Amino acid sequence: MDFAFEAGTLPLLISMPHAGTGIPADIAATMTPAALRKADTDWHLRELYGFARELGASTLAAHWSRYVIDLNRPADNANLYPGQDTTGLCPLDTFAREPLYQPGRAPDEGEVRRRLALYWQPYHDQLRAELDRLLHVHGRVVLWEAHSIASVVLRFFEGKLPDLNFGSADGASCDPALTERVTGIAQEDGHYTIAINGRFKGGHITRTYGRPDAGVHALQLEMCQSTYMNESADDPAPFGYRPDLAGQVQPLLRRMLAAAAGWAGKGGTA
């Protein structure tokens, strides 16, 4: 299975392209111990967004690790942040610059093409199909790109990230009114720091599928993992889910998602 998918009833699709931990055996045999730790996974997002079914949202979560192929990078491997360091379509190192592959065993061009067909394309086909279904039913839809990351990754940014990082491709991937509605709820909550189109403006999925003129409004949320889990390999329970922390942020997530779906259902005017 290339992904976990559940169809909902609301004009809302939650996509989790970096939640996967699967690595096929033939690829794992070429990798380093650092790769097999899968530290850069968006850990536990399916559990964190576990209320989505009750809410009525559609959900799509990757099975394969981003180390196999990154579902949130374009097929041509173009840098989404020109001039800035970033990992690619088939990354060669971890966020901490640890090599992912044993010497001489990194994927060549043919292997990248193979992974595109086998592991990248099925996720995007399902994503497109569900957006089309929801558009047919509702006339417009919100694509919520769910991500998480360690709060401190010095390779990409200085200091600690804000807790909640919203990205709309600088306003191109969704109606600004939707961003204002959702981020306003986060600001009113007051328990978490936020940024809007800061270090994270939205990746390939947000920028590609977010087409407000066609009825698809895409908004990415990159959460600090410190808001819901042990984010360090040095923690007593490395990368462990923290129900105590998650239980504090989940009500806010639910309010934001419900508002996004309500906004779409009312024609984007509320």
Rank of each mutant, 00 (worst) to 15 (best):
G8S: 12
H18R: 12
G20N: 07
G20T: 09
T21N: 00
D42Y: 12
D42R: 14
L45Q: 12
A52S: 14
R53W: 12
R53Y: 10
H63K: 10
I69A: 09
D70G: 10
L71W: 05
N72C: 12
N79M: 06
L80H: 11
Q84W: 01
P91W: 03
L92K: 13
F95T: 04
R97H: 04
P99K: 15
R115M: 11
L118H: 05
W120C: 04
W120R: 01
Q121K: 09
L131H: 06
E145S: 13
I149D: 02
S151C: 08
V152G: 04
F156I: 01
F157N: 08
P162N: 08
L164A: 04
D170I: 03
A172W: 02
A172D: 03
P176Q: 13
P176N: 13
A177L: 11
L178N: 04
G184L: 09
H191S: 15
A195D: 11
A195N: 07
F200W: 08
G202S: 03
H204G: 01
I205W: 04
I205T: 09
R207P: 01
G210N: 04
R211L: 15
R211V: 15
V216Y: 03
Q220V: 06
L221I: 08
M223F: 02
N230V: 03
E231A: 09
S232K: 13
D234C: 11
D235G: 13
Y241G: 05
D244E: 15
A246V: 05
G247W: 06
R255T: 14
G262M: 15
G265A: 15
G265V: 11
